[in-house]
């Protein structure tokens, strides 16, 4: 048969196929596509590049993607990735697994102190996290890494970072003016409609039990098991996590608690929870804080409109 395979046919033939394939699916896309920078692009500083090298050395890419898709909801999903976002990335760090969250837009999500506590031990700020501790990196490298993480999202990150820095100063000023002024400052920034709103749902044992669970899974590392703000993250965070017990008698409505938990307090380490907690969960963890730590709850108080159908 003429189809007899010779060494030449095997070696030359397969190399020829490979060459053709490389030309079409590697070289052609490389040469023919226009990868102009997108509108969020800016160059990274050398400090940020130093942080990126630490990111690569420690394999953050095996748990974190930098690749947002049209149907994503989680962190970073405010922007769908474009080719022009990656024009300075050597290597590109798209990632292939999301054991952790996408970090494309991580810059400015949190202030630096949150990242410090989180890198020292992720369970300090995120009790259920399975991310490794990076305390071994030491202060200098954690600093570089934080600068890189805070640059993710480039111009959009810069915009968010400027906001973090501004509100950080404000929050520190308020904190240093003493507890009374601080509590007042915190409440002042809650929109009036929310401030005057009582928690519309009555306190129930079942609701408190659920609130307790949420508190353990989301809040305990900062605010501490007894709500005094002395969780393990406390030494790294400034202004420190709020001591809820100082809120007693200061007209902290259910609405204020809800709003702060939902929206977070930009500039402080207090994150927003509107993405991970649905409405019922926020009311319940808020009421848990009110009942157990503030010792004062307006849950179910009048005026409250038509009772919800599920109320006991």
């Amino acid at each position: 048969m003429s189809l007899r395979m010779t060494p030449g046919a095997v070696v030359i033939g397969s190399l020829a196929i490979l060459a053709a394939v490389v030309f079409v699916v590697v070289f052609w896309p490389y040469a023919s596509t226009d990868y102009t920078p997108s509108e969020i692009y800016r160059a990274r500083s050398s400090v940020e590049d130093g942080g990126r090298a630490i990111y690569i050395a420690n394999g953050c890419v095996y748990c974190h993607s930098q690749s947002i898709r049209a149907f994503d909801w989680d962190l970073g999903s405010e922007r769908i990735a474009q080719a022009g976002d990656y024009v300075a990335d050597r290597p590109i760090l798209l990632g292939s697994e999301r054991t952790g969250v996408d970090l494309s837009q991580e810059g400015g999500e949190h202030p630096d102190d949150w990242h410090l506590a989180h890198f020292i031990n992720p369970r300090y700020t995120r009790p259920n996290s399975i991310m490794p501790r990076f305390a071994f990196l030491g202060d200098d490298k954690i600093h570089l890494l934080t600068r890189y993480v805070q640059s993710l999202g480039l111009k959009q990150a810069d915009h968010r970072m400027a906001r973090q820095v501004y509100w950080k100063q404000e929050a520190i000023k308020a904190y240093e003016a003493g507890p009374v002024a601080n509590v007042k400052w915190l409440a002042e920034h809650v929109p009036p409609g929310w401030r005057n709103l009582a928690n519309p749902y009555p306190t129930t044992a079942a609701g408190l039990a659920r609130g307790h669970k949420i508190y353990q899974e989301f809040c305990i590392g900062c605010h501490g098991p007894i709500g005094d703000g002395m969780g393990p993250a406390q030494p790294y965070i400034y202004p420190p996590p709020l001591n809820f017990t100082i809120l007693q008698g200061r007209e902290i409505s259910g609405g204020i608690l809800y709003y702060q938990i939902m929206n977070g307090i930009t500039g402080t380490a207090m994150p927003y929870f509107k993405r991970e907690l649905e409405s019922q969960k926020i009311w319940e963890v808020g009421n848990y804080v009110a009942v157990y730590f503030i010792n004062q709850s307006d849950a179910g108080a009048e005026p409250k409109g038509i009772p919800s159908a599920w109320e006991p």
């Binding site: 699916v25 590697v26 896309p29 490389y30 596509t33 990868y35 080719a83 990656y86 024009v87 300075a88 990335d89 050597r90 290597p91 590109i92 798209l94």
Partner: peptide, 9 residues
């Protein structure tokens, strides 16, 4: 490595 999307490809 290459840079950007061509690196991924």
């Amino acid at each position: 490595a290459l840079v950007g999307i061509p690196d991924a490809i």
